[in-house]
């Protein structure tokens, strides 16, 4: 018999909002962006081109997942506003993500200033550990606050690719090594996301809604 404990109902309701697989697809698109940037690294070009490329891919990813959610996911799941406790946890997640962005920015600045300051930065493995921590901490936070364990898979993929990049120096050993590594990770993430999405579309049908009643959120009986 299914549990009807209030805490389980709340958690199940929250997790049901993540079942579309869209966050997995977003991770996949981020990895695609990293692969494209790795490809651009092989070609001498101005840095603004990289920035524009990254912005275009990120915007495309955001627009695509927004459209998928609005067109296919929300009509099946409906809309819900969660309690202040859940909203507070989401805000804490935002603060943690912001802290990780600050930490990453600090690392970039330190790296840029390391020669002038004469500061000995960690070696390859140390750098990898720092980068992986910066990636894995927000991913773990996201996985915790969104109740989505699949995110650990994506975080793990990031860490593996960064290991190949920073420690193994794959791009210098294999032509387009960075592209291959990020591209492979992107394929895995996108495959997971698309698989979850297709499964979701199959098992969660659009509810039948009488014509004229909340037509946005359901298939009309006429259809």
């Amino acid at each position: 018999m299914e549990s009807i404990r209030l805490r389980d109902i709340e958690r199940k309701s929250w997790r049901s909002q993540q079942q579309g697989g869209l966050i997995d697809i977003q991770f996949g698109i981020m990895l695609v962006a990293a692969a494209v940037l790795a490809a651009l690294d092989e070609i001498p070009m101005a840095s603004w081109v990289r920035i524009v490329t990254l912005s275009v891919i990120a915007s495309f990813g955001a627009a695509l997942t927004y459209w998928m959610r609005k067109r296919y996911v929300l009509p099946r799941l409906g809309r819900v506003k969660f309690s202040t406790d859940r909203v507070r946890r989401t805000r804490m997640m935002g603060i943690m993500l912001a802290a990780c962005v600050l930490l990453t920015s600090s690392l970039v600045v330190l790296t840029a200033l390391s020669n002038r300051l004469g500061v000995a930065l960690p070696g390859d493995v140390g750098a990898w550990l720092v980068i992986s921590a910066v990636i894995l901490v927000p991913v773990a936070g996201l996985a915790f606050f969104l109740d989505c364990p699949r995110l650990f898979v994506h975080g793990g993929l990031f860490a593996v690719v960064e290991f190949l990049h920073v420690v193994v120096h794959l791009p210098t050993r294999v032509p387009f090594g960075g592209v291959i590594a990020y591209g492979a990770a992107a394929c895995v993430s996108l495959a997971v996301g698309i698989g979850v999405y297709i499964h979701f579309l199959r098992v969660v049908p659009r509810p039948v809604v009488p014509i004229g009643e909340d037509a946005e959120e359901g298939a009309d009986e006429a259809n």
């Binding site: 209030l6 049901s16 099946r76 409906g78 819900v80 969660f82 909340d214």
Partner: peptide, 14 residues
């Protein structure tokens, strides 16, 4: 009880 508010579709699915 466990949410702030919800629409008909969410309640139907749940």
């Amino acid at each position: 009880y466990v949410v702030e508010s919800a629409d008909y579709v969410f309640l139907m699915q749940s």
